[in-house]
């Protein structure tokens, strides 16, 4: 199938399912020094959907995730070629400020990492820094809303002045999610957000992801294939820096198109 026909088929499928592309990645390549870690990645990530990135360790999924908010810029040996278009703008264009990119694209990490501040300040800090709110009533409202949206409000409303680090692991991770959504991002990146959590906390985070996708586009890296299957609408399988297969999660887990995907999903390698 030539490129033109492939684009037409893709557009028709999108139209059928009312899909809106939020992040359009074109020919993305990344090198750590001389070592190429991502090889010609092309992918459309859809708005208000959860997209899971799966693949064996070292396949490039976290590297790819960090490309989406230019976190790799912080590593001096990294060079990136290609385009990551969000809202018709390539975030790697020279006139783009990476701080504004990271405001639009929030991130939640593997280990819950609250600031050594109070629960209230954890949520309010970035919003005040980005001048989204000033201290006072508006800030209080934003903190409450963010904590409510992250499903944490009822558990912390009476102890907002206590340190964020005093919460349990699962609560800390939800606090980090509240902190992320307080700056009203459009996309939330999650890098193995539940790998350090117990099953109950994991379920709470997964349920929260399903709630949050109503408002945000979520891209998550996970080693837990059951988690990808449970929560993701779309799944992308990476291997050796290449995007091998990308499709609706149901198709990837029930009828993968490629043998390599099937072998990975069924635990035959990785």
């Amino acid at each position: 199938m030539n490129q033109e026909i492939r684009e037409k088929v893709k557009t028709d499928t999108q139209a059928d399912k009312n899909l809106i592309t939020k992040v359009n990645v074109k020919k993305l390549n990344l090198w750590y020094g001389d070592n190429q870690a991502l090889n010609d990645i092309n992918i459309d990530i859809y708005e208000n959907k959860i997209t899971a990135l799966i693949g064996p360790s070292g396949c490039g999924k976290s590297t790819f995730l960090r490309c989406l908010n230019r976190m790799n810029d912080l590593i001096s040996s990294v060079s990136v070629k290609g385009e990551v278009i969000i809202d018709h703008k390539n975030i790697y264009d020279k006139d783009i400020d990476e701080v504004s990119v990271r405001k639009k694209i929030g991130m939640v990490f593997q280990q819950p990492n609250p600031f050594p501040k109070s629960i209230y300040d954890n949520v309010a800090y970035a919003a005040i820094k980005h001048s989204l709110v000033k201290k006072g009533r508006a800030c209080d409202e934003l903190v409450e809303k963010s904590l409510r949206d992250s499903g944490l409000w009822d558990e912390v409303k009476d102890k907002l002045n206590q340190p964020g680090t005093s919460l349990s692991g699962g609560q800390q991770q939800r606090l980090c999610i509240a902190r992320t959504i307080a700056i009203q991002p459009e996309v939330i990146l999650m890098d193995e957000p539940t790998s350090a959590l117990d099953p109950i906390s994991t379920e709470k985070i997964e349920a929260l992801m399903l709630e949050l996708k109503q408002k945000y586009t979520i891209i998550t890296v996970t080693h837990n294939m059951q988690q990808a299957a449970r929560v993701a609408d779309y799944t992308a399988f990476f291997h050796l820096g290449e995007l091998i297969e990308y499709d609706e999660t149901e198709n990837v887990f029930i009828n993968p198109k490629l043998k390599k995907t099937e072998d990975y999903i069924t635990g035959r390698f990785g």
Partner: peptide, 9 residues
């Protein structure tokens, strides 16, 4: 049922 078994284990 097959989908549910595959996705939710």
């Amino acid at each position: 049922i097959v989908t549910t078994l595959a996705l939710y284990s």
